[in-house]
Design a binder for these strands. Sequence first.
DNA 1: ATTAAGTAAGTGAATATTCACACACAAAGA
DNA 2: TCTTTGTGTGTGAATATTCACTTACTTAAT
Lengths: 194, 194
Amino acid sequence: MDITPRQLEIIESAGKILTSSGVSGLTIKNLAKEMQFSESAIYRHFKSKEEIILAMLEYLALTIDERLQNAIRATDEPDAKFTTMFQSQFAFFENHRYFVVAVFSDGLLKESQSINEAILKLLGIIVKNLFPILLEGQQKGVFSNTVPFEDLMYILMGTFRLQMFRWRLEDFQFNINETGNKMIQSVLTLIKNK
Amino acid sequence: MDITPRQLEIIESAGKILTSSGVSGLTIKNLAKEMQFSESAIYRHFKSKEEIILAMLEYLALTIDERLQNAIRATDEPDAKFTTMFQSQFAFFENHRYFVVAVFSDGLLKESQSINEAILKLLGIIVKNLFPILLEGQQKGVFSNTVPFEDLMYILMGTFRLQMFRWRLEDFQFNINETGNKMIQSVLTLIKNK
DNA sequence: ATTAAGTAAGTGAATATTCACACACAAAGA
DNA sequence: TCTTTGTGTGTGAATATTCACTTACTTAAT
């Protein structure tokens, strides 16, 4: 299932609307207005509203996964990988604020089973990329072994998500690259063996 | 602005609906059905749907604050206070699952300015109660000074929120008291001075 | 000549809210 | 002890608006 350029435009418009008006603002009418064409034209490119959201989540999953893999592959030691991974994440959302709401909206679009699954899949991609880093780090003794492996992961992901949440709540006023990476360094300090 | 028993019933019904059907399910019609009376009867007790949500958030803020204060006052050392506080939180939401969606829905109900403020206020209550514990802990040397004070707070709140999020995503299948407290102990292990 | 991509104008269903009205009960005046 | 009046809480029907989506038609490019 390839995505056409026009579909990508629509997906980006959807993200834009989500950011500015929340879920309740994401209507076909608003989407058409943002795209500067009629409501019915939307249906030339997507079968339904649900498919638009699904395409958005899938597109996000794909690009995030690719980017993370590349970023991680380019570095060496666990703690460097760790830093790189989150730097890459913050930088991405800095450049694609549109999607912050979509990704961190906590099952906001709960009404549909397949949307719920797509959100879970997106969460799984972070796990998939973070997992081997933490594992390697603990095995090499770079990261603390005093707490279980999964707990480290949840602490990290929770911290990351909260930063994104705050950033959005405060209308992207602060520098997420700076603030976010500082936070991640603090976590790194805590989980590193001294 | 005191809350009548009938209003509290409606608030609880609203929470119930939020949990089972998400935001999109919280309609006056569903609310009336849950209350077993007509839609118009709702308006005998609340001026609008927005006021119902606001009342719910305010009620939550009040009860959470009271409970946390009592729980914390009853204990002594920073790390014990710390544990007690989160135990109390997990236990509360175990007994009031209804409200998990409302509190952790991340600006789900973003459409209204006053609702947004109410959610921020709720967040502030956790901060208000956690703040002095961490401060005292760092001053007494119980908690690590290697990372800034606010960072500790964000790590904690992020971890807590993520647990609640996972719990809801997995339909309350796991024991949040057990899992949550275990998580919090892991964080405690990391931030404690050895 | 076929196809892709647009439009105008509609559809029924759902939405929050309001309306006039009804019933039970309590206080107060006769 | 009736009767009046007010109040709290309910009802069913109707309101205007918004929703996702459909149909029939046009236009432009290949």
